Simulated scan of single mutants.
Amino acid sequence: MSEICRLAVARKTQRAQLVGDWLSGAQLTLYSGAIPTMPDTALSDQVVLAEFMLPIPSGDAADGVFTLAAGTDPATVLTTGIATFGRLVDAADAVIGDFDVGLLGSGNVLILDNINLVEGALVSILSFTLSEG
């Protein structure tokens, strides 16, 4: 079975914008623990660390890449722990997907100012960049 799929840049950008549309007004929850195999998998041992509300509109798509708009307010850390992934749900509470979390330079989709979170402190999103393959 072939694994080659090469989309034109215009189509990648359309797909990236579709994701951006889903993210407008979405909730991003940071978790500690193992990232589920699939976003449809129910959470079990994972712990909620913080919750963000994403802006409307959520960001821009260009050249097949979606970039979250600047200005998402910091979130108060609810529980001490190490952020390992974020789950996004839309305004209707439907799961959009799970995304890896890291620090600047990690290459992860979701970049935070800190992944070692302490209850009561603030955590900020530095960037959220999703490239369409």
Rank of each mutant, 00 (worst) to 15 (best):
A121G: 08
M53F: 06
L88Y: 00
I111D: 07
V77L: 03
A50M: 00
T72P: 11
T79I: 04
M53C: 03
T80E: 06
A91Q: 11
A91V: 10
E132V: 09
G120C: 07
G81Y: 00
L49M: 00
N108T: 14
T37Y: 10
G33K: 13
V118R: 13
R15W: 03
K12Q: 06
G64H: 00
N108W: 00
G102V: 02
S131V: 14
G33D: 02
D63G: 02
G25V: 04
K12D: 04
S127E: 04
D21P: 08
D21T: 01
D45T: 13
I35R: 15
T67H: 07
Q46T: 01
S124Q: 13
P36Q: 08
L30D: 05
I82K: 15
A34S: 14
A62T: 09
L54N: 10
A91L: 00
E3A: 15
L49G: 01
A10M: 06
C5E: 11
T67W: 10
L7F: 06
D40C: 12
F52A: 05
P57L: 02
A92Q: 14
A34G: 11
E51Y: 03
T29P: 09
K12V: 03
L130R: 13
F85L: 07
C5N: 13
L30G: 10
V77W: 08
A61S: 02
D98Q: 12
D73P: 14
S2E: 11
Q27T: 15
M1D: 13
Q17S: 14
L117V: 00
T29K: 04
V48A: 08
I111V: 15
T79W: 00
Q17W: 08
V9C: 07
A8I: 04
F99S: 06
G120T: 08
G71Y: 00
T76Q: 10
S58C: 11
I111E: 04
L30Y: 02
L28D: 01
L28Y: 07
D21W: 02
S131I: 13
E51D: 05
D113A: 09
L103W: 05
L18A: 13
